[in-house]
Amino acid sequence: MADVAREAGVSGQTVSRVANGRSNVDEATRERVLAAMRRVGYRPNSAARALRNGRFRSIGVIISALSTFGNSRTLDAVASAAAGEGFSIILMPVTRPSQGEVSGAFSRLDEQAVDGVIILIEQHELDQSEIELPHGLPVVVIDAGGRRDHPVVDFDQASGATAATRHLLDLGHETVWHVAGPPESYAAERRRKSWQETLEDAGREVPPPLTGDWSSRSGYEHGVRLAGDPTVTAVFAANDQMALGLLRALHEKGRSVPGDVSVVGFDDMDEAAHFWPPLTTVRQSFDEVGKRAVAALLAGMSEAGAAEAISVPTELVVRSSTASPAH
């Protein structure tokens, strides 16, 4: 840093402010210091900085089922929000969220010196009493169940599923079938429960839910069965990928959408607007969840956080895959 200061003709404090990204340096001086850094080959030593101020500028993320659309989009949002705050992320996948795997992931992250941990595990095992999250690091949980010993950030799954079901009933459909997500998923459970409660509150028949695994393939397989039942006029799929498979099955079996069957999805993935027909779906703001999760974690690092539940609203996006039933 002394070499940079001499090269740029500034004080060591000014070099330190530039190296740490402080804003109280005028732009011309900042550019002069950065140019001097490049000339002398200076790079800030993050390990030394961490020893000095107690921050590693790194966030650990423990995640399961990285291949699912929701988890991958949420992870992307967390990474973007972390980068915006000057933090990098260290990813720690777990194949099954048991006590041993979760504790092992924490230990490995602790060895890699992170400032806090975000947990993105949707399976029910995370909420079982035998799984205890280690102490000593700030933790934020995304998409979890009833535990409230750490801040929890989640979408308002219930209102989204209610809006989807209510939309189909308001169009005049007698009832709504449901292609549900896997039973071990919190999101799937909340969407299924809200769908059922909305039908019950309206005094409508509740068809047996068909359980999928979030994949287009499972949506297609259930769609083949639903397409063969002429009484089915409306279906709410628990995610857009299963809705895509459902649409294919209906098309193949000669059931027009929305002429014969209306379809609603959940997620509003980028491709949903380009399905045929364009898919009515429930939009989730993954960017907002990422920002809220990182903000809650940073608050925990400064001891200003609280074990609160943060709910991010959802929004029904109406497109061409839903209409009033044919008479």
Rank of each mutant, 00 (worst) to 15 (best):
D149H: 13
A273G: 05
A309W: 02
P258D: 04
L109A: 12
A5C: 11
Q99Y: 11
A2S: 15
A237N: 04
E174L: 03
D287T: 15
W214P: 05
P313S: 08
T233G: 10
E31S: 12
P44E: 14
V294F: 07
T95A: 14
L126P: 04
V289Y: 03
G136S: 11
S194G: 04
L279P: 08
R32E: 10
V312Q: 05
I89W: 05
S67Y: 11
A163F: 07
A307V: 03
L168N: 04
S185H: 13
A299V: 02
H167W: 11
L168D: 00
A296D: 11
F155M: 13
E315V: 04
L298E: 01
L226C: 05
A299M: 06
E197S: 14
E252V: 08
P325L: 14
V235L: 08
E252F: 03
S324D: 01
P134I: 02
P325G: 10
E205M: 09
E122K: 10
R43H: 11
G219E: 14
S64M: 08
L66W: 04
V264I: 13
R108A: 15
P134Q: 12
E130K: 14
A304P: 00
R43Y: 03
A48H: 12
V289H: 03
H274V: 10
T74L: 12
L210M: 14
A306C: 09
M269S: 15
W177C: 12
R192S: 00
R248C: 05
